[in-house]
Design a protein around this nucleic acid. Sequence first.
DNA 1: TAGTGGTCTAGACCACTGG
DNA 2: CAGTGGTCTAGACCACTAA
Lengths: 268, 268
Amino acid sequence: MSLFDAKRPRYHVVADALSQAIQQGRYPVGTLLPTEAELCAQFGLSRQTIREAIRLLVELGLASRRQGVGTRVERRDVSQTYVQRLEAVADIWQYVEETSRKVLKVTDVPASRARVPLPGDPARRWRMLEGLRFVADERRPIAWTQVYVAPEYAAVTDAKNRDRVPIFSLIEQRFGVKASRIRQDISAVSLGADVAKLLRVPARSVGLSVVREYVSTQGEVFEMTISIHPADRYHYTMQLDLAYASESAFIAERLTLPAGLRGSSSKK
Amino acid sequence: MSLFDAKRPRYHVVADALSQAIQQGRYPVGTLLPTEAELCAQFGLSRQTIREAIRLLVELGLASRRQGVGTRVERRDVSQTYVQRLEAVADIWQYVEETSRKVLKVTDVPASRARVPLPGDPARRWRMLEGLRFVADERRPIAWTQVYVAPEYAAVTDAKNRDRVPIFSLIEQRFGVKASRIRQDISAVSLGADVAKLLRVPARSVGLSVVREYVSTQGEVFEMTISIHPADRYHYTMQLDLAYASESAFIAERLTLPAGLRGSSSKK
DNA sequence: TAGTGGTCTAGACCACTGG
DNA sequence: CAGTGGTCTAGACCACTAA
C-alpha cells in the first residue's frame, strides 16, 4: 500500500508530486524546496532517486539547484515552448554556400550614417561591405546586402574566403568572439531607386527587409547586417517545433521581446 | 598517476574521451559505443559515473540510448544550434490578449478557393474566419487575417471566447489535438484594393504577409492562417539564442580542440 | 535466452555557501 | 562552522531487445 505502483519509476512519481505542489503554491517561486535529505525521509527513497526526480524538475525549468544553498523554485507552470532550430552549419552556411556574393563597395562609415541603427557612439566608424547575392544560374540577384562590422574586427573583411563564409563566423575564428544571440527584424519595405536598380526591379516595388544583429557573449553588438530581397524572389520560412522535455532546460532565460508582436515601435 | 586529476569530475573526463573518440571516427555514426559494463572496466569507474558521462553525450546530441540494444552514436560533431523559443503562453497568447479581434465574416469554403494553399482534397470545405486585429487605442487595424479550420474542428469557432484565445489552442482544449509543429512563411506583398481598404491604407501599398500552418502530432495540417499587416505598423522580430549556453558548453568547446586530452584548463 | 540499458539502494567523501 | 548539493562506489533487480 504505497504511493508507488509497479508501473512508473519512482522518481517520476516524486517529480510529479513536487511539481504539483509547486503548481498549487505550496512551494512559491523563489523559495527553496525541502532538502534532498528531507525528501528522502518524506518519500522513503534513496537519495539518488530523489535527485533524479529533482533533475526532471530542473529540466522542465521548474527548479534550479545551487550547491551549498538548495533547490530553488523557478516557476510555477511548465510552459509549452516552441523552438526554431537554426543549425549554424546547416542553415546559415548553406545559405552562404548556395549563393554567391558580389561585393560592390567596402568603406568605413560612422554609425550615424548607417542604414541600420548601430549601437554606441554615433561617430564610431564601422566597416561596411555592400554587395549583392545570387543563386546559381539566376542572373538577377536575390538580395542586396550591407554588412557592418565593429571597428575592432574590421580586419576580417580582408580574408580571402570572405565571400564563402559568414562574416560573424570569420570573427569567431579569428578573434574568438562568438555570437551568442542573433536578433532578427523582418519587415516589408518599398524599394528605393538605388536598391531597386541593383536588384533589377522597378523603383518602389515591394521588398522584404531582414536586419540581423549579432550579439556576443558579453552583450556587445559586433556585427549588423541588412538584406533587402525582391518580394517575388524571396520568402522567409521557418519551422517551430514543440519542444520536448529534455530541451526545456534552456527555458530559464526568457525572451526579452515578444516574438510575435512588434508594432512599428523602435528598437534599441 | 591516473587519467583523472583532482579538478574535473570523472564523468566529464569520460565524456570528453568518448566524444573525442567519436570525433576522430573511432566510433562511427550509427554504430554502438561499448556497453556500460565495458566502459566501467576500461575506465575503472562505477557504472553510475559512466552513465553520467553518457548522459552528457546524449544531451549534446552525440549519442542515444535504447534499452536492450545499446548506446548508438548519432553524430560526429556537436553542431552549434541557434534556437528561437516561442512560449505558447507568453508570446502567442500575449499577442492575442494585447490585441482585439473583430470578426467580419464566417463561412465554409472549399480548399481550392482559399487564399492559402490548403492541403488535401480541393473540394473539402474548411471553416474560414475573416477579421481584423487591433491594438488598444489604435483605431487603424494592425492586421487583416483569415483563419482556416479543418472541417472536423470547425465547431470550435462557435466558442464564446473565440476572440480571446488562439483557435489552435481551442482545438487542443476541445479535441486534444496539439500543434506539434508550426510552419511560418513570411513575405512582402503589395496590398490588393479590398484588403487595403479594410486596413485603411492606399491600395497597392506595401504589406507583410505571415502564413502559418499548424501541424498535429499525426502530421495533419488542421489549421492555417494568413495575416497581412501594413508595413509601417508591424515588424516581425525574433531572437535566436545559441544553444548549449550552460553547463554542456564547456564540453562542447573542448570538442573543437585538437587531440591532447589533458592540459589546458578552460574556465570562463 | 543472454545481454543491454533503466531503476534503485545505502552508504561515502567532497565543494561550496552562508552565518 | 554546519548544512547544502555534487560526485562516486558496489552492489541489486527489472524491462526491454534481439537472436
